[in-house]
């Protein structure tokens, strides 16, 4: 089956800044495809090209067989784009916003209510409230409803969960999965939160305008080649300096209540443990752990800078 989205060699520069340096990828129908990377990585530029709002300097992209340049008009009916900045009308009520976006696409809230019912039901008690007066989580639900109201096949969601608290974020991902499972909608979604990568079917790790790697979240983690150690002691503030000063330590990053450490070849965890005890640390714990997406991202970032 042909992929729903296919992009080849997409390039875009703004002045001297290369926002995209030749990006190619495919997204299958019914997939939740995550673009994972920090601000400035090129995620929004990629979204704007796919949403037919920005012309690439080079490369091609098709969605559902339609070229983003040549067939932008029919294509716009098939996509729902949610930009990173809240872009609903703050002065219109919840209901008015939804009615407005429906009418642009020649439909009505009543006709397509079933598409948004799951999300909109939570908003209905506030349907006469102005959009500007909603809380962050509610704004996000309204924005998603407005993006869905014309029955798009592909959702382009640019950082829908940024600045949203962990509970609302979890609910949002549950909603996306239901849209995929019940309506067969394909989703391309970006996030700077590495822990959300596992919510996607496949992810692309993106940094400085290029894809570092594309795989399933499990595939990315499995490809992590180093042995990773979680290190802790009773003096966490000092641990950072003492780890960095030890020559056998290659990288040491704080991860919540432990440090994630990689060692140079030939170095032993036992020796590290002794070194830390000699530095005056008590209750030293050094144990091997499995890498997470964030460990992989930082390791790939380092490699791409070195090459």
């Amino acid at each position: 089956m042909a992929p729903l989205v296919a992009a080849h060699g997409l390039r875009k520069s703004f002045g001297k800044t290369e926002a995209l340096r030749g990006v190619g990828f495919e997204v299958a129908e019914g997939e939740i495809y995550g673009l994972i990377g920090p601000d400035g990585a090129g995620k929004s530029t990629l979204f704007r090209i796919l949403a037919t709002l920005l012309k690439a300097d080079g490369g091609t992209a098709t969605i559902d067989g339609l070229d983003v340049l040549a067939h932008y008009r029919p294509l716009r009916r098939r996509i729902g784009y949610m930009p990173g900045r809240f872009s609903l009308y703050q002065d219109l009520t919840v209901e008015e916003n939804l009615a407005f976006f429906a009418s642009i696409f020649g439909t009505t809230l009543r006709e397509n209510y079933h598409l948004v019912a799951d999300i909109y039901r939570q908003l209905e008690p506030f349907r006469h409230r102005r959009a500007g007066q909603l809380s962050g989580g509610m704004k996000q639900k309204l924005a998603l409803s407005c993006t869905l109201i014309h029955a798009p096949r592909l959702l382009l969601l640019d950082e829908p969960t940024t600045g949203v608290d962990p509970v609302s974020r979890k609910e949002f991902w549950d909603t996306l999965r239901r849209l995929r499972d019940e309506q067969g909608i394909t989703v391309i979604v970006s996030t700077p939160y590495m822990d959300e990568a596992t919510q996607c079917d496949r992810i692309a790790l993106i940094q400085e305008g290029a894809f570092l790697r594309v795989d399933t979240p499990q595939g990315i983690v499995d490809a992590y080649a180093d042995t990773l150690w979680a290190v802790r002691s009773d003096r966490m503030h000092r641990l950072q300096d003492d780890l960095h000063r030890y020559p056998a330590v290659r990288t040491a990053f704080p991860f919540g209540e432990t440090f994630h450490v990689t060692l140079h070849p030939g170095a032993s965890a036992r020796a590290l443990c002794r070194h830390l005890e000699d530095c005056g640390h008590n209750n030293v714990e050094v144990r091997p752990i499995c890498a997470g997406i964030e460990d992989c991202f930082m390791s790939l970032m380092k490699k791409s800078h070195e090459s």
């Binding site: 990377g37 920090p38 940024t162 590495m194 990053f253 930082m298």
Partner: peptide
Amino acid sequence: TGGVDPVTRRQFWE
């Protein structure tokens, strides 16, 4: 630290 890359986020905490 919203939106910054994981390495910068940690440097920020330093």
